[in-house]
Amino acid sequence: MKQVKLKLIAGKYKGKTLVSYSEDTRESAQIVKGAVFNMLFEVNGRVLDLFAGSGAYGFEALSRGASAIYLNDQHPHAIKSLKANNQALEANAVITAFEYKDAIRYYERQSIRFDYIFLDPPYAFEIMPIIEAVIPILNENGKIIIEIEKKNSCPELADLTLLKDRVHGIKRIGIYQK
């Protein structure tokens, strides 16, 4: 199991290091993560990182002003990374280890809604059904941020407005608002 180190790039945890122990997940490049947060301008409210890996998106959101973060991943090495990073930052993140559909059902049953939902699933997953599945747990005016391969396009959705569609290297970033 290799260990990858990542840095938080802004806010109260700027320069702090995150670790990733998972070879099953791919981490977003610093430049892509920076571009995402530049497009968002500010982050406040409750955040869900549904395919969290090391939690880079969630911890960066917390560093930049989110009031609470929820991190989910089903891979044991990702959960180890999330717990280590949460402890190192003393972040009080809520960490769950569900398959993504079970995580969504869990948050629905708990009546937990989010202002920002980050979706960076494995490339083999189709993004459209995932976006549609999280809409019920997204607050009014909430945002969904997707990271997909650049060869794919951001899908059109009736319930959401596509605010941003940008390519950064090999990735495409889409930001939707409810």
Rank of each mutant, 00 (worst) to 15 (best):
S22T: 03
S22E: 03
E23R: 11
E23S: 13
E23C: 10
D24I: 08
D24L: 11
T25P: 09
T25Y: 07
T25V: 14
T25N: 12
R26I: 05
E27C: 05
E27G: 05
E27K: 02
A29N: 15
A29S: 15
Q30K: 15
Q30A: 15
I31T: 01
I31N: 08
V32H: 05
V32W: 04
V32S: 09
V32Q: 01
K33F: 04
G34Q: 15
G34N: 14
A35D: 06
A35Q: 12
A35W: 06
A35H: 05
A35Y: 07
V36P: 13
V36E: 12
N38W: 02
M39F: 15
M39K: 15
L40R: 07
L40W: 06
F41S: 11
F41R: 08
E42G: 00
V43A: 05
V43H: 02
N44L: 00
R46I: 08
R46M: 10
V47C: 06
V47Y: 02
L48C: 12
L48K: 06
D49E: 04
D49I: 09
D49C: 13
L50T: 05
F51G: 14
F51E: 12
A52Y: 08
A52H: 06
A52M: 11
G53V: 07
S54T: 04
S54F: 00
A56G: 03
A56T: 01
A56S: 12
Y57N: 08
Y57M: 15
Y57K: 04
G58N: 08
G58S: 13
F59A: 08
F59K: 06
F59N: 02
F59P: 03
E60I: 00
E60Q: 02
E60V: 02
E60H: 01
L62S: 01
S63R: 02
S63G: 10
S63I: 03
S63Q: 04
R64C: 07
R64W: 01
G65L: 03
G65Q: 01
G65F: 02
A66R: 09
A66P: 11
S67L: 08
S67I: 02
S67R: 09
S67F: 01
A68Y: 00
A68D: 03
A68C: 01
I69N: 05
I69M: 05
I69L: 06
I69R: 07
I69Y: 02
Y70I: 00
Y70N: 00
L71K: 14
N72D: 10
N72Y: 05
Q74N: 15
Q74L: 12
Q74M: 14
Q74R: 14
H75L: 05
P76T: 02
P76N: 03
P76R: 06
H77W: 02
A78S: 15
I79V: 13
I79A: 08
K80M: 09
S81D: 07
S81N: 06
L82A: 06
K83Y: 04
K83W: 00
K83G: 02
K83V: 03
A84Q: 13
A84T: 12
N85A: 08
N85R: 14
N85C: 07
N86H: 05
Q87Y: 12
Q87P: 00
A88S: 15
L89W: 06
E90S: 14
E90G: 15
E90C: 12
E90R: 14
E90M: 11
A91Q: 12
A91M: 07
A91N: 13
A91D: 13
A93R: 09
A93T: 11
V94D: 15
V94M: 13
I95R: 03
A97D: 15
A97V: 03
F98T: 10
F98W: 14
F98P: 14
E99F: 10
